[in-house]
Design a binder for these strands. Structure first.
Length: 286
DNA sequence: TTGGAACGCGATGGACCGCC
DNA sequence: GGCGGTCCATCGCGTTCCAA
């Protein structure tokens, strides 16, 4: 068992690696820069161009917000949520959602979860629920690495060290269910659970439910994960997009002191069985 | 010694804001 | 409206640490 059912497309990964090698060795033949091979690779032109393209991809939030807008409108149209609005640039979170129960949910949109940026979040004081939603638009990314890195390496350490509660994480985007990232949850189904939503054809989301309280070595060393129904937005998303109960992931963190270190053990349970468990790993914060 | 995990940093673009 | 500065976002990579 693994932390997330889907996996990196191995063929695509190999093709990316092969192509990037070609690009590195043949790039001087492209364009009209007028440099010979040695001059080209010494000029910084190649490195600069690569960084510029990468930055353009990284900084483009448009398609991610478009995806979230489609999903939230769909949920609102069907009564799973009452209302939603963009939180605006002044706020640290991206969306504020009102549930039929009246609860206010703050949603923070993130990328692939691997990287220090995952740790940049603030739970707004008015939120009854706070959810982090990973929208990874890179079909070549490794979902298993990113899910584990995000939940254990980044979020668990941040939740514990900053005492900031996160109710859950969603790993689900427009690449899910495409050829680049086929969804094992619906593979082989006679009638695949696909929701057609604007330009997207979406399998059920991958949902991770976190504890209701922040773990603390002395007072609260091992709080259990909440039930899905405790986090209204996650339950609504699960129901709206045809999730099965045995597909929901429950995450808990056990913390303790070991010498000068605070260590945490992250456990992910799905379908009643542990699917991933870390060793007790120290939180390093300088 | 080596390989992998953890995590901070670098390079860049986009959004916003104030000033002219 | 255009320009420049600032802040914050992204992902990949480098460094450090530790277990095998």
């Amino acid at each position: 068992m693994t932390i997330i059912p889907c996996l990196q497309n191995d063929e695509l990964r190999k093709r990316i690696e092969t192509y990037s090698e070609v690009l590195k060795t043949e790039a001087h033949k492209l364009g009209d820069h007028g440099l010979d091979e040695t001059e080209f690779y010494n000029s910084g032109l190649f490195r600069g161009a690569i960084e510029r393209i990468r930055g353009q991809f990284s900084a483009t939030m448009g398609p991610k917000r478009e995806f979230a807008r489609h999903v939230l409108n769909y949920m609102q149209d069907r009564g799973f949520i009452t209302d939603w609005q963009s939180a605006g640039e002044a706020n640290r979170h991206d969306y504020s959602v009102t549930m039929p129960s009246g609860r206010i949910v703050a949603i923070e949109l993130k990328g692939c979860l691997d990287g220090n940026n995952t740790n940049i979040f603030d739970r707004p004081p008015q939120a009854h629920e706070f959810v982090i939603w990973s929208v990874c638009t890179n079909p070549g990314a490794n979902p298993r690495h990113n899910a584990w890195s995000g939940i254990h390496t980044r979020l668990s350490a941040e939740i514990i060290s900053r005492q900031e509660r996160v109710d859950g994480t969603i790993i689900w985007d427009m690449v899910c269910g495409t050829l680049g990232r086929p969804c094992p949850k619906i593979a082989g189904e006679e009638k695949p659970r696909v929701t057609v939503l604007g330009p997207y054809e979406l399998p059920p989301p991958c949902i991770y439910v976190f504890p209701a309280t922040v773990p603390s070595p002395r007072n609260n060393p091992h709080p259990p994960a909440q039930q899905l129904g405790d986090v209204h937005f996650l339950k609504a998303l699960h129901d709206c997009f045809q999730g099965h109960n045995d597909e929901v992931n429950y995450v808990d963190f056990a913390v303790e002191y070991r010498g000068v270190d605070t260590v945490r053990k992250t456990t992910v349970t799905r379908g009643g069985a542990p699917v991933m468990e870390s060793a007790p790993t120290a939180i390093r914060r300088t």
